[in-house]
Amino acid sequence: MRKIISLLILTVASHFCYAQFSTVQFSPATFTGEDAVTFTIDLTGTSLAGETEVYIWAFANSGLNDPQYPSKDGYTNTDWGNSPATAKLTSLGGNKWSYTLTGTDLFNPLTLGQLKYFQFLIKTKTGSKQTSDSPKYPFAPVVYVPAVYRLFPSRMNQDDAITVYFYQNLSTDITESRMAPVSMTIKLYNASGVQFGSNITLPVRSLGNKLYSASFIPAVSVAIPAGTTLGSFTYAVNGSYFDVNGATINVTGPENTKTFDVLHF
């Protein structure tokens, strides 16, 4: 019982640790280590609410222990008790702040291919108050990294033709790896995270050797009123397999999310 309570406390604590980062938004949503990216964060409800100056403490590849991706502190992490001006966030009013960084610059001398993800915390100049560590924010790879799902193209918005590739041979999920894929379910979401339109079901195409794909254009699949910008979409593979009695079971694999990028002609 004590173990269960401890686990429960840990789970709740970790939720609150990351809760303050639920307001973090990146622009662009997808970025490589050489792209300048701006994030915004709302510190309302944290110990840093009401502060007139806040500073970033950033670190890359922390905990990876992989020589290909060495850990590195941001160059702004000079002195915990006296953060430099280069680490200062820009106030957006209220408790909202923004900061712009470029991975290869902030984590110099790490190169583009050495940046896997980064994390940060927000602190006062003297370090008297701070947030917890942020979740890991990935840098988009600049080399092809095999994964269970691949989206084409890598940057997309609601007007693009989007192809979801499903590499079933790379899956370690029991449902996903066992099923005979039949279709893919797409759900579109508006900028507020509310589902937009009905689910879209696409047939999957077998490309051989357990590789499947499905393509769609959001703006063709559903009618999007002029001036409406969608925020994201989710995708999941549907299929079937046989149970121990030989009966067919319809199953759906894990749902994955992709945030639309801000693109223009």
Partner: peptide
């Protein structure tokens, strides 16, 4: 995909899959 193209994306385990260009005529 100009990012994949400029970084010469390729998959040695599946050389038949083009990671940079695809025909989308049939998508719409």
């Amino acid at each position: 995909d100009l990012i994949a193209k400029s970084n010469n994306f390729s998959d040695p385990s599946r050389p038949e899959v083009d990671l940079t260009t695809q025909d989308i005529t049939a998508v719409a």
